[in-house]
Design a protein around this nucleic acid. Sequence first.
DNA 1: TTCAAGTGGTTCGAATCTGAACGACTGTGT
DNA 2: ACACAGTCGTTCAGATTCGAACCACTTGAA
Lengths: 155, 155
Amino acid sequence: MEEPRWLDDREKAAWIGFLSATNLVARKLEQQLKDDAALSHTQYEVMVQLSAAPGRALRMTELADRLVTSKSGLTYQVTQLERAGLVARRSCPSDVRGVIAELTDRGMEVLREAAPGHVAAVREALIDVLTAEQLDSLATGLGEVSRRLRGSASS
Amino acid sequence: MEEPRWLDDREKAAWIGFLSATNLVARKLEQQLKDDAALSHTQYEVMVQLSAAPGRALRMTELADRLVTSKSGLTYQVTQLERAGLVARRSCPSDVRGVIAELTDRGMEVLREAAPGHVAAVREALIDVLTAEQLDSLATGLGEVSRRLRGSASS
DNA sequence: TTCAAGTGGTTCGAATCTGAACGACTGTGT
DNA sequence: ACACAGTCGTTCAGATTCGAACCACTTGAA
């Protein structure tokens, strides 16, 4: 049994900062969206992805990958958004099994109304707190972290 | 209605990196702990906090604050850990209302067994991917983010 | 002392998430 | 053509989360 390499002080500080910032920011944004737009963060992210996609539409699996969520979780959320009239399901022309989620006009409108407040909250909680160097480090470092972690996903 | 300050490219990269790294790392560690130690990440964190506290014990509220979770969520998890014999509830001497969660010997043992694998996973997913500068930026920047966000919490 | 306001933890119901199982279909190799 | 492994999205049961309501107790002020 090898003695594990424990985290030194610098590493521990980074890890604790990451852990708590992660939770606190998520919690903050969740609340902001719930209060100001009656949306969960997941729902908001679904809509953002769709709005940026060609034809405002994406396959379910593609969407699940981008959101880093399970397929079943996405099914649930898309159903909720569909009930609210913000997203519509279409069947995929090239694959009968496939389902395409499409942002409706109403969804686009809701997103446009929600976006400014959400961006402001993101700035307040995270972006505007960091220096330019810290921003670059975050982008580069966490970008690399994400790249490596993608490609070991499942269901 | 003011035109909101949208995120520029650097900011957007940082935000997207943060978002996806957050989800991917959480998912990875959740799975590692489930597979290797049959613990959820929340449960593991409860035990880590307790193990580092004087007397291996903390008040419920204090614990909830440290974990950035709701009081009811903590009640649930502590109950689970109690059933598993890893944590015990004691009543608080100085406040009859209070409840103190204490790590049992068995809990300490389980934690000791789980820790090496978990630290290794944390290294692999995050710490060892970053350069020394990025680590410092993370620690400093996200530390500040956390500090600011604490102090607007609720139950 | 006494009262009002606040705190600590639990309980409850509702929402959400996950993995496994499923049914339907695709695509490849033979 | 044909099997057969893989993919797509859904459904299901179970686990977890949250906030609101609640009760018991504490605290501070009158």
